[in-house]
Design a protein around this nucleic acid. Structure first.
Lengths: 341, 341
DNA sequence: TTGAAAGCGTTACCAG
DNA sequence: CTGGTAACGCTTTCAA
């Protein structure tokens, strides 16, 4: 059994305070959350008493009574891609200012285990924020069945869920335009995870714009959304003989672009003299002088803000329809693309 | 008010199951956790009923009654250093297999806000895992006052807490030995965060071993434990004229070593021909062909395992004395150090 | 082997 | 404006 709240060094509760103030527990509860029905005098008295005794509400008890935990489940992709780490840091910061807490359910490449998905119910999370890794069908069913709102970030939903993503299609087009304007004519695209809508959209935007502009269709290489995948693709490109070799490479994620650039350098190919490179995401490493990578930066801060907004709205009203928000990324032209026509 | 548990699609609870099975709620509770006092038959009957109705215990209610939440607070350093991201991923995985959940309290360079520290109590976390950023004194007081066990990872405690860390002093020595054996004679050390025990110990091990071996004391540069700090330090070194310039640099964190290497390359200094480099941590990027960085790898998996062990023990028995566990790192000699005498 | 009942700390409803 | 009381879902002690 828990501490029985009798001693003097014990933790303060509404009941303790009520006794001290000579009022009912319900009054304390109301006073503490500023209910205007309680007289200002009483409210103040109780407030000062609360701070004096170091009162800390027990959120779990509150949850039990109110059904609202203030907990948001967080599911992260593999931090091998720094984008997810950056996203996490932003999410923690913003959730904190909104008074929400994050329950870290999963981080990694694979899908969440079933036991983990259950934690989502056991801890009565109010909603769930999912990045990357598609929601496993089991977890999806759980959320749907129990009306736990889900918002996907950086991925459009395969199933019942809302989403916030960068306009990946448009971003891919922007890269194609930029390559075209620079006079580049032989292209390659390093693809990402084949079942990630994000990767596919970026690629589709790129390819469609090239064909629309009657430019050569790009060579396609698999990169698996990892550094090593990008590196291997870069090696494959570097091995190609001069006339066939692409003069511009679009990797649908910065981490792969960085891998490819490393491969190029080791193979003696100069960027951008021999080959131009562009990525997507705008991770911190992309702006380092060593890479100075041209990329489409995702509006990380806004994405998290909108995601939490969507989530909040659906927590307040479970019956809101699903909604997908697309935010435009920002093309950052840096040193990895050859200048001029 | 929460769902009132009357309808048929409603979530199952011990009461629901009790009615269905024609027993008391307490029996259900006991049966579900395999209490041998309940007959095997009843236990089985209730178990199958539970799975049939998709019963999921409400952990919050359990916490309220038992005082144990199964929640571990997690405080992370800035993911600008990938080491913390990797640590997080490992912690999530291991906590999950132990049936523990992580409440992500903070991630970033600064100290945790006071409001966040309070969440720690509000959610009745059983214990707290802290990496990097020293526990703010406020948070520290809270934990101490409420007997919430704290384990620091990758940092030895300034205050009342247990800790798991790499043997940083020994690691620093190992780097010095390795440099010495390679015939290097002019050293520099890129220092980390000045109030991080980890950084200081690594530096101390390095410096003391050099002096013990009557080698030249190293030049000291500030790196602030960031990529940019390492880069700036690298630039400063690269600007030095030949006879004065160090021929071996130890950055007390890989992320700084990588920054320094980038600076060297941009300045036209070849690694390891012109200058040798070593780091510490063993982050994923250190093993990439583009860096192939000599480093001391921290035993991440073991560190997390031991940290959770320490925490578990202190959750079970709040009065256990503080304990610090030092694990030996593994020197990985790679391509950034000149070979031979 | 099982049941009944009393909490755990908070909130919500209904009175007054 | 405030008090009383009944939940919320689970554990646990005491009785049977």
């Amino acid at each position: 059994m828990a501490a029985s709240g009798k001693g003097s060094g014990e933790r303060a509760t509404v009941v303790t305070l009520a006794r001290l103030a000579g009022v009912a527990a319900s009054t304390v509860s109301r006073a503490l959350k500023g209910d205007p029905r309680i007289s200002l005098a009483t409210r103040r008295r109780i407030a000062s008493l609360a701070t004096a005794r170091g009162y800390m509400p027990n959120v779990l008890a509150r949850t039990l009574a109110s059904g609202r935990s203030g907990l948001i489940g967080l599911v992260l992709g593999s931090v091998e891609n720094p984008f997810y780490a950056e996203l996490m840091q932003e999410a923690v910061a913003q959730a904190s200012t909104r008074g929400l807490r994050l329950l870290l359910l999963h981080a990694g490449a694979g899908a969440m285990e079933d036991r983990t998905a259950e934690a989502l119910l056991q801890y009565q999370v109010d909603g769930c924020l999912i990045t990357s890794a598609e929601l496993s069908s089991h977890a999806g069913r759980i959320c749907a069945a129990h009306k736990v709102p889900v918002v996907m970030v950086n991925r459009v939903p395969l199933l019942h869920a809302s989403a916030v993503a960068c306009d990946n299609f448009q971003g891919g087009q922007a890269i194609a335009d930029m390559f075209g304007a620079a006079g580049l004519r032989r292209f390659a695209v390093i693809r990402g995870n084949p079942d990630s809508s994000t990767s596919l959209e970026r690629e589709r935007g790129f390819v469609e714009r090239l064909t629309a502009d009657r430019l050569q269709a790009p060579l396609r290489l698999e990169g698996g959304s990892t550094y090593l995948g990008g590196f291997a693709a870069g090696q494959a490109i570097a091995r190609m003989a001069k006339p066939d070799r692409p003069d511009a490479v679009f990797a649908v994620a910065d981490i792969m672009a960085i891998g490819a650039m490393d491969a190029f350098r080791l193979a003696g190919l100069a960027v951008p003299k021999d080959i131009s490179v562009a990525g997507f995401d705008g991770i911190a490493a992309s702006s380092r002088p060593a890479y100075d990578l041209t990329t489409v930066a995702q509006p990380l801060h806004e994405m998290v803000t909108r995601a939490l907004d969507l989530l909040n709205a659906r927590i307040a009203d479970t019956d809101l329809p699903d909604e997908t928000v697309l935010l435009r990324g920002m093309l950052k032209v840096r040193g990895t693309v050859r200048r001029g026509a």
